[in-house]
Amino acid sequence: MVTTPRAKPDGHDITCRQAVALMTDYLDGALSEDDRALVEAHLGECEACTEHLRQIRVTVTVTGRVRDEDLNPRAREDLMNLYRRWQADREP
């Protein structure tokens, strides 16, 4: 997954671009042990990527709040009618 970085300043085994590219896999727990360790080592040293990860987490939280959406009453009524027709056909 991780390719050899072109440049690595002291202490960094992966670049910021690589760390950011792996973040979704990281949050999903989908990384190999090695890659996970690399990401965590990078995050331990890189404030910019740590902030980015925090922002992604906030993003996920906020997106999760989009769900509550009022159903248009007409659509709801249509579906309840559909249910009643099905129920009527079902019971002889």
């Binding site: 072109r6 910021c16 671009r17 902030e51 980015h52 925090r54 922002q55 906030v58």
Partner: peptide
């Protein structure tokens, strides 16, 4: 090119 932030993220998460 080297894979480091051009402009590091501005802090706003917290």
């Amino acid at each position: 090119q080297d894979g480091w932030w051009v402009t590091p993220p501005v802090h706003w998460a917290d």
